[in-house]
């Protein structure tokens, strides 16, 4: 399972970088999306994927039972997904506006602010 996840993360990172380096602006955005998925999956994986109990303290006890899953990385991933969603929504509206105003879809033509 861990090897599969590692491979998947690697493929996602590779695909993301490939897409980011393309000239089309839409593909740039898709690349950034894939990159954030890869990062989220990475955080999920580094916590160790295992079949373990839910991290709840049983009634009457003061400590969790042995070998529970670590809930924190999932909370982190959840936060990151929500933030990523908001930012992506903004970015998509942004490129739509940019396309409407300038008709540019090739990032090589985006150079009026560079000199």
């Amino acid at each position: 399972m861990n090897i599969l996840l590692a491979l998947l993360i690697g493929v996602l990172f590779g695909a993301a970088i490939y897409m980011i380096l393309r000239r089309s602006i839409i593909k740039l955005i898709i690349g950034l999306m894939l990159l954030s998925y890869a990062a989220n999956l990475l955080i999920f994986a580094v916590a160790g994927v295992q079949r373990a109990k839910v991290p709840l303290i049983p009634e009457g006890a003061s400590e969790v039972a042995q070998s529970v899953a670590d809930p924190l990385p999932q909370a982190l991933v959840l936060t990151a997904i929500v933030i990523g969603f908001g930012v992506m929504a903004f970015t998509i509206v942004l490129i739509q506006q940019l396309y409407q105003q300038s008709g540019i879809e090739d990032s090589d033509e985006l150079k009026t602010t560079d000199h």
């Binding site: 980011i20 602006i25 740039l28 955005i29 950034l32 990159l35 954030s36 930012v87 903004f90 970015t91 942004l94 490129i95 506006q97 940019l98 105003q101 300038s102 540019i104 985006l110 009026t112 602010t113």
Partner: peptide
């Protein structure tokens, strides 16, 4: 939402996401 502003924003947004 002037044209060059949107262009500057796109550059700023994509590098910051990275």
């Amino acid at each position: 939402q002037r044209k060059f502003q949107l262009e500057g924003t796109l550059k700023y947004v994509s590098i910051n996401l990275l």
